[in-house]
Amino acid sequence: MWAEKYRPKTLDGMVDQKEIVERLRSFVKSRNVSHCIFAGPPGTGKTTAALCLARDLYGDAYRGHIMELNASDERGINVVRETVKTFARVRSIGEIPFKIMVLDESDNMTSDAQQALRRTMERYTETCRFILIANYSGKIIEPIQSRCAPFRFTYLPRKDHDQHLRLIAEKENLNLLDDGLDAIFEVCGGDLRRAINTLQAAASLNRPIDAKVIYSIAGRAHPADVRKMIETAMGGNFLEARKQLRDMIQKYGVAGSDIIRQIHTEIFRSTVPEPWKLKLADIAGEIDYRLVEGADEEVQLSALLARLVEAGYELRETR
């Protein structure tokens, strides 16, 4: 996968995140690393930074000094008790006396496991430094946060995003058009891993890469489809709108939260009277919130569609 092929190998090769890279370099220089939390949205270089740091620190044999654990797959307390401890307590051989434990997606760790981790971190500081990677640092318990140096990753600026993708396109001999690049950014919102995966999937079609190609593969509804669904609902045809929704979710694998975000965007682009836009946004917001609490995306989104049907009806009444 190109996302791996073009993953930077050293801190110098990192795209953007300049301040973070600067601080990590000072770790390498002083041959010391503190416990860290890398927090930030997906595809902004957190895992890459951890790997680069390790490589710069230990050289090419870095793999023997670092262990990656994924909390989403192994998030129970037993993992901390066993795997993490076993790794953490054995002293590293070589010039640097500690190893690095990378806990990816650690905001998915149960709070029990986090509690257990807290003691482990303290006890084995001599032999092991922890890098916790998370989307939201808020989901990591306070005591751990206070033991770690926080690093906040942010989405890449558009300029760096474009530059990096153009570079890959050039090396892979792709015909990446400007509106294709725009579409990638719109769809992936600066998530570079997703952007590169999207680019690779687009390249597999062996066609010039334009916006249409990108939407068709991005697991993202084309804005026109979302618009059509809203219009169908507001025009009063609930069953047809629900069918379109099902297609989006099932055939194209679009996530519910993405659809709501797109509906929200489309509401403000639509031609409904201005005061209504806010009303509709309020409905979308309520359903978005329920989506977080609920269990079933389609049911929640259908409820939203039913509200749109109702709104469309009221709109026609008042005219």
Partner: peptide
């Protein structure tokens, strides 16, 4: 949807189902 065709009725029925689903999430 086929049995509650009035837009207001449909919206409130779907809203009830949405809430039922929210409680399903809470149980989980």
């Amino acid at each position: 949807p086929a049995h509650l065709t009035d837009p207001h009725d449909l919206a409130s029925a779907m809203d009830a189902l949405s809430m039922a689903d929210v409680y399903r999430g809470r149980i989980r």
